[in-house]
Design a protein around this nucleic acid. Structure first.
Lengths: 217, 217
DNA sequence: TAGATTGTTAATCGATTAACAATC
DNA sequence: TAGATTGTTAATCGATTAACAATC
């Protein structure tokens, strides 16, 4: 027990959480194919992750399988959505270029995972062509229009030099989490979860691996 | 020495390559601010990575710093671009929805890192509004229009169920690397480097961390 | 029962980091 | 010289994985 009286649980590593998300996406696909069970061996082959690793990751949160059989896809999917927090709706505000907003509004990834885009903040708000349930505002209106009680997370797709300022403002507003795409580090006060998805990093990894492969002949 | 007569080098981990890409992006930013040197301590504070980690990562490839001083930003940037393969042009073909193509055509990440979009393959090619140096084709034309001698990598932004087929075709064509965004695993013959950038994974990590934070009070 | 597969232990492997001599 | 910071060693820490009893 720690000083708050809660049971002290071992910290789950970021690598594990990332893999749980990977398992979850595969379960989504298999469920749609009307598959009912899945073994760690099969999941291992699909995702290229060691099967002991998979069983270990899951065992950090409970026993979800049946010996001799494997995992029931629906109930494992349910368990993972509980663990990851995908068992509830998350309201999302988008902040950024209109093209990007359109991409995300049409994104299956958001729809399928209970992320609801409720507001869009733009620099050129007239260009957007979306449905009526999403309000479109100017970026100036951030403080006026975002309600941290209702708006849980923000997705930012702005040019890199504008991101830090928006992050400051969102943290002040009291939003819980942010995903941003700029190729740049940002600072926070630590009251907000921030994740960066940077295409530059993946391009660097891609080119490194291509060269590595060539070198190996 | 291995059987091909090359010096046997220790395998560099993916985690290290990822971090080198992170260092590289920070050097890009600092260079534009006309900074000339950078210590591992300062980089550590910017990116939240232990400074010994940074020195260790770099030392796997050489000695790029000066004791007592730090790293010269320009020359470290040069060294990293050599390591990561960002010291040359990479021709990129885009395959996917037109909104996404527009986002990538305007993307600073590609422009700044020597990635040149040369061809776009679309399902609805008439909608695209881009400059004249980029050819736009129908996805049917993949085999006809891609020249693996000239077209190095592909970026795919298609609905998940269409990605595997495109990956097969690209590998047959002989392209060297692919970056794709769908929330799904894909298979290859192993002749092509494939990297997946999946927003679902990051959203899952974001929500997990938000809940973890709440739990900690 | 025989075969399959989980959950978990314990060994291994690899990554991180503190510490410090080298040196600017 | 004193202060700063690298490059590298060695210790620590944590992640991965083989192995296997449990059990369907």
């Amino acid at each position: 027990m720690n000083k708050k009286g809660k049971i002290k649980t071992k910290k789950i590593s970021e690598l594990t959480i990332r893999r749980l998300s990977i398992y979850y996406r595969t379960l989504n696909v298999l469920e749609k194919l009307y598959r009912d069970t899945l073994s760690s061996k099969e999941l291992s082959e699909i995702e290229g992750i060691n099967s002991a690793q998979i069983r270990k990751d899951l065992s950090l949160f409970g026993s979800f399988g049946v010996r001799g059989i494997g995992y029931d896809i629906q109930s494992l999917k349910k368990a993972l959505s509980d663990i990851l927090g995908l068992n509830r709706k998350w309201n999302v505000v988008l902040i950024g270029a209109w093209q990007f907003s359109e991409v995300l509004v049409n994104s299956e990834a958001l729809k399928e995972n209970n992320f609801i885009i409720t507001k869009i903040f733009n620099e050129t708000s007239d260009k957007i062509n979306i449905n009526d349930s999403i309000m479109v505002y100017d970026i100036d209106q951030l403080e006026k229009r975002i309600d941290p009680k209702k708006d849980h997370i923000a997705i930012i797709a702005l040019p890199p030099q504008k991101v830090q300022n928006i992050i400051y403002r969102l943290e002040k507003i009291g939003i819980e989490g942010v995903l941003y795409f700029a190729s740049r580090a940002v600072k926070t006060q630590g009251n907000m979860v921030v994740i960066n998805q940077d295409i530059s990093i993946n391009l660097g990894m891609l080119t490194y691996k291509i060269m590595e492969k060539k070198q190996a002949n």
